[in-house]
Amino acid sequence: MSGVALVYDGREHGRGGRRRSCIGRAASSRGALLRHAQRAGAVRNDVELPEVYALLIATLAIVFDGLAPLRNFQRAP
């Protein structure tokens, strides 16, 4: 449902109410997922969502950098 939120421009449901609702539910779900991981011992109890987002963004940046084509790459003859 959170992917759908990016499509709505607010006109259909009045001033973006549905979009805000979907975004709020997605944020709530991520918080619940973090709490569940903390209870399971997979994540420390002092970690909060901003730290998780920072780690996720840094990890994705590393992955996408590794997938990027090499600059000035020349194939051997």
Score class of each variant (00 low, 15 high):
1 M>H: 13
1 M>T: 12
1 M>V: 12
1 M>W: 08
1 M>R: 14
3 G>A: 11
3 G>T: 10
4 V>D: 14
4 V>T: 10
5 A>V: 06
5 A>D: 06
5 A>L: 08
6 L>N: 12
6 L>F: 09
6 L>Y: 09
7 V>Y: 04
7 V>K: 02
7 V>R: 07
7 V>W: 03
7 V>G: 06
8 Y>K: 05
9 D>R: 10
9 D>E: 05
10 G>S: 13
11 R>F: 05
11 R>W: 06
11 R>D: 03
11 R>L: 12
12 E>N: 09
13 H>D: 15
13 H>I: 02
14 G>A: 12
14 G>V: 09
14 G>N: 11
15 R>S: 12
15 R>M: 07
16 G>C: 03
17 G>D: 01
17 G>I: 06
17 G>S: 05
17 G>M: 04
17 G>C: 04
17 G>L: 08
18 R>T: 09
19 R>C: 04
19 R>M: 03
19 R>I: 02
20 R>I: 03
21 S>R: 07
21 S>C: 04
22 C>T: 00
22 C>L: 15
22 C>G: 03
23 I>M: 08
23 I>Y: 07
25 R>E: 13
26 A>P: 00
27 A>S: 13
27 A>K: 10
27 A>L: 11
28 S>V: 02
28 S>P: 00
29 S>F: 05
30 R>F: 06
31 G>T: 07
31 G>L: 05
31 G>R: 15
31 G>E: 04
32 A>T: 09
32 A>V: 04
32 A>E: 07
33 L>G: 15
33 L>A: 15
34 L>G: 00
34 L>H: 01
36 H>I: 10
36 H>C: 13
36 H>W: 09
37 A>E: 11
37 A>G: 04
38 Q>R: 03
38 Q>W: 01
39 R>E: 10
40 A>D: 11
40 A>S: 04
40 A>N: 04
40 A>F: 02
41 G>A: 13
41 G>V: 09
42 A>E: 15
42 A>W: 13
43 V>Y: 00
43 V>R: 00
44 R>A: 15
44 R>H: 05
44 R>V: 00
45 N>Y: 00
45 N>C: 03
45 N>I: 01
46 D>Q: 07
46 D>H: 09
51 E>Q: 05
52 V>Q: 00
53 Y>T: 05
53 Y>L: 13
53 Y>P: 00
55 L>Y: 12
56 L>V: 11
56 L>H: 09
56 L>M: 10
56 L>T: 10
57 I>E: 15
57 I>F: 14
58 A>H: 15
58 A>S: 12
58 A>F: 06
58 A>D: 15
61 A>L: 14
61 A>Y: 03
62 I>N: 04
62 I>D: 05
63 V>R: 13
64 F>I: 12
64 F>L: 14
64 F>D: 14
64 F>G: 01
64 F>Y: 11
65 D>T: 11
65 D>C: 08
65 D>Y: 04
66 G>M: 09
67 L>I: 12
67 L>W: 11
67 L>G: 14
68 A>L: 11
69 P>W: 06
69 P>E: 13
70 L>E: 13
71 R>A: 15
72 N>R: 15
72 N>I: 01
74 Q>H: 06
74 Q>G: 05
75 R>W: 01
75 R>K: 07
75 R>I: 03
75 R>Y: 02
75 R>G: 05
76 A>C: 03
76 A>Q: 08
76 A>E: 07
76 A>P: 01
76 A>F: 02
